[in-house]
Amino acid sequence: MEITISVNGTDNTVDVEPRMLLVDVLRTRLGLTGTHIGCDTTSCGVCTVLLDGTPVKSCTLFAVQADGRAVKTVEGLKQNGDLHPIQAAFKEAHGLQCGYCTPAMMLVGSVLIEENPDPSEDDIRWAISGNLCRCTGYINIVKAIRLAAETVAASS
């Protein structure tokens, strides 16, 4: 099937089998390898992308379902060549160790601080509760998301 997905603001038309998962279209057809594959069983959340602005697991969505819709991946976070505040905060607060879960954590964090500009630690932990970090580096991830919220609040 021929489908067109807007990925990070650019329309991409690809011919796919219906059984092809969105994560594989992003990685192997579009070369956007920032979206990772972890468990491949809907458990770990490292394949998180934003579908029309909502975080979803791209290993549990067929690419054909995203036909005509907008997908945002970690590659789409930076703004006009500058790091998104969430990216800058992960860098500043050491919000990553091995980095495998980081794209997903940043996407979830970016949505959280848009919806809730002043999230508590509990709010942040709740928001990332579908995303595993097997380095167990949660403390700095939570700090980074909090720092991003503070940065955005201070600049607005």
Partner: peptide
Amino acid sequence: IADPLVRNL
């Protein structure tokens, strides 16, 4: 129910 990402779909 499940986790936040699964709840979104």
